[in-house]
Design a protein around this nucleic acid. Structure first.
Lengths: 214, 214
DNA sequence: ACTCATTCCGACCGATCGGTCGGTTGGTCG
DNA sequence: CGACCAACCGACCGATCGGTCGGAATGAGT
């Protein structure tokens, strides 16, 4: 069957994506050579170019796969019911969980925001990335608006609050050695993740809560 | 006078640092070539190598200059009196101001956390960076502890809260086009900076405040 | 006038970059 | 069987990488 590679062994394409994700997260787009990726997979360089016709396309594919994983969990978490406050709590927590489970994600995500030069912004891959990001930001924005008009969150500029909130969610898991140095322990250690999550949720809950009305 | 270049014209060395800072912030360490830096300054490549003996040293010099600027403002802001809550408010605000005044700073700072591979961690420059970071983190940590034991802030893990707070402070000004897309306007526009600052201070004030005691 | 250090440059080095090319497998069809 | 095709490879391309070297200016000190 050519249409169903239902084997347990991951395809070469997936293994290339895995290796590339790890390397791009650690050293950035221009810090990684295609030879390095190929060696990591155990293939020749030209074989990598057989699966992805350019470095930019490989990078875009890595980003899209990550965004898809995050979007998937995020919208599922958002779809589950509850008041805006409950839903915010749950989906911020779930977001942290995804980032904690895949140590490469936060870093690569942050990097891809900086290196927009590298991405072929106009190509179809750039479009896909753009849509995936929108698929995450838009429902989040709606949730905040909903909570404010329901009187659960204090009134504030939704876009500014969103931009602010992305920081503490993504940064800790992207900080790598720096974060380890601050905490004294591995950021991805289960106990640290739990601690980080509880502190962040405390901060968000109280920081966004409407002051007078309950 | 060889020891006092007190002219108004910036020295070649400083102009190299300026150009390199701009480029490193936009494209990262390995995304920038020494030729590019030299062209930006209007010098030959070998002239740049006359002032900085390697690319890594140039990068470290850029980082140190930025950290020094931030540390300077930060410790000055911290030294001024007031209760812990007042001092936290003021120095977070001042921190935002520095980052807003120099659009390259936040991005380069974040990048340098990711690219610890590129920095010669064991060399004297690496040491200088390390100390500059410590010079900022340590007084901040002390401030938080002080506020907690004084009962002004709610009790929490100082290190985790610190790691969390760095996110919303640095990220918005590092987000570049992404931030612009979220806000709909330039992140470094004076009005947006004001808005961002007020939202962040609201969030921090309420989010860290002790719940019961006043 | 002679020296000496600073600043700058063009030419060059070996290595590596992203990417191409021609060709060889091995498996799946008709 | 022969045709086809995805997967893979080694060899190679021009360009660029970080870095070196010898020398040409310039100016201050003596």
């Amino acid at each position: 069957m050519t249409i169903a590679p239902l084997k347990n062994e991951p395809s070469s394409r997936d293994r290339i994506l895995d290796v590339a994700e790890e390397l791009f997260a650690r050293r950035g787009y221009s810090g990684v050579g295609m030879k390095e990726v190929a060696d990591g997979v155990g293939l020749g360089k030209s074989s990598v170019f057989h699966h992805f016709k350019s470095k930019a396309e490989l990078y875009a594919a890595v980003c899209i796969r990550i965004l898809a994983r995050i979007e998937d969990r995020f919208v599922r978490s958002l779809a589950a019911g509850g008041t805006p406050a409950v839903r915010l709590d749950r989906c911020v927590g779930d977001l942290l969980d995804v980032l904690a489970e895949h140590p490469t994600h936060a870093r690569l995500l942050l990097r891809s925001m900086f290196e927009d030069d590298d991405l072929p912004d106009d190509g179809p891959e750039g479009r896909a990335v753009y849509e995936a990001v929108g698929g995450i930001l838009e429902p989040f924005s709606s949730l905040l608006k909903e909570g404010m008009s329901a009187g659960e969150f204090r009134l504030a500029s939704v876009s500014h609050v969103m931009l602010l909130l992305i920081g503490p969610i993504v940064f800790p898991f992207a900080s790598g050695e720096f974060g380890q140095q601050v905490l004294g322990k591995d950021v991805f250690d289960a106990a640290q993740v739990r601690r980080l999550k509880s502190e962040l949720l405390d901060l968000v809950r109280v920081g966004l809560h409407a002051p007078s009305a309950e």
